[in-house]
Every structure is written in structure tokens, then in C-alpha cells.
Amino acid sequence: MLKINNLHASIDDKSILKGLNIEVKAGEVHAIMGPNGAGKSTLANIVAGKEEYDVTEGVIELNGEDISELAPEERAHNGVFLSFQYPVEIPGVSVTNFIKTAINETRKAKGLEDMPAKDMLKMIREKSELLEIDRKFLSRSLNEGFSGGEKKRNEIFQMAMLEPKLAILDETDSGLDIDALRIVANGVNKLKSKDNAVIVITHYQRLLEYIVPDFVHVLHDGKIVKTGDASLALELEAKGYDWIKKEVNS
């Protein structure tokens, strides 16, 4: 599904990713952990195509195709979904209107007609129930005045609506209380299938109790320095990151 080879990237001439490799196959869940400033969010944004980063070296392939020249919306049309760490407010644009536009633009890119309103409504109903979202919430302006939990739930709701191939959850657990965390994780688990893949970026092991990863990667100083299974996350939780830093430096 996703294959990243020797990725180097910088922002304002400051090098952040320094030769990162990762391969994610369909049906897999990967967790990327690491201390602050390791480059976790940078990786997520680069895969999604944010333009302020300079990719100086390396290849990003999605299903065997190099996507590094594609615009963010083209990557989205190809099935890349990024759940934002800080979802953006758009005043006056309702959640429903926004998601409708997103779905129909994606369909348009694939040469499909707009989704019939009836189907759209049905889908919205189903998916909002899945995430225990109140219908009233859908007519509010996108992310405007949303609580931290509402914002994250709304991200996963959009993910459910857009049915991406590759979902990257950037710190989706931050700012969530335990109930919201369970709802969000539950949603993600239900959306998981053998045909799609999920990358969970997180600081803490907490979310991984609910979304169990097949692989856990430790990102440090722009590189993946250690890869293991779910137990690595527990080890990190218990021991912190310092031992890894030492291991790398020795």
C-alpha cells in the first residue's frame, strides 16, 4: 500500500526527516511513536502533500505509484486520509456541506456522478451512529467552537464517510477523555478491513490498547530506529524513550 524509501525532508532549511523507510501493507495497522520533535507530524503532513515541506530525497509510493508530485487533493482522491492533529475551523460551512463537497469532488475526480442525496443521507446517518455523533452536530460550522473531543470524533466521522485506503491518524488521542477515546477507537476498528491500512501516530501507548498495531515503529531524529510488535509500545510506556536514544547513539 504505502512504501517510503529513504525520505529526506526539511522545512525552512531545517532538516527534519533524514532517510526514513517504512512499508505498510493492506490490512495492517502500524503505530509510529517517538519523542516530541522526532518528525512524526512532519511525516504525516508530507504523505498528505503539505507544500511547506521540501522533500529533498526519497520516494513515496502508494500502491506502486510515486505520489510525490501529486497535489494534496489528488492524493486524497487516491485514498490518503489524514486525521489532523489540529483540525481547522471553517466558519459558515457545515459539517454536512463539507463532507458532501469532499465526497462529490472525489467522485468527480474518478469520473463518477455526484452521490445521490438519498444515499448520502443514509450514509451520514449510519456513520454518525457509528461514532455516536448527534445529528445536530452535523449542521454546525466545521470545527468552529468544537471541543477537542468533538473535533477528533468529527475527523474519524469524515474518515468513515470517505472510506480511505490509507488512514493516518496524527495524535488522534490527544485531548480525548477515556469515553471519547473508546468511541473513536471503536470507529477506527470497525472501518478496518483487509483492503485498507492505518497508521497511528501517537505519543502514548493508551490508544494502542484499543487499536492494536501489527507493527510499532520508533521515530527518532528523522529516522525509524526500532521496529517491533505491540509489545514494543508497552516497553516504551514503561521505560520512556531515553534507552532508545542511547541504543541508537552507541
Binding site: A48, G49, K50, E51, A71, P72, E73, R75, A76, H77, V80, F81, L82, F84, P87, V88, E89, I90, V93, N97, F98, I99, T101, A102, I103, E105, T106, A109, Q158, L162
Partner: peptide, 19 residues
């Protein structure tokens, strides 16, 4: 705002219209 819309598959022109 534009990047957020782009990420959800909405191109810049359409995103501006939406905003």
C-alpha cells in the same frame, strides 16, 4: 484551511468557493 480542504479531496478553487 486550504490544505485541510485539499486533504479531503477538495481542490483549491472549490475550497475557496466553499470558504
Amino acid at each position: 484551511q486550504l490544505f485541510y480542504c485539499n486533504q479531503r479531496g477538495i481542490d483549491t478553487e472549490k475550497a475557496i468557493a466553499l470558504i
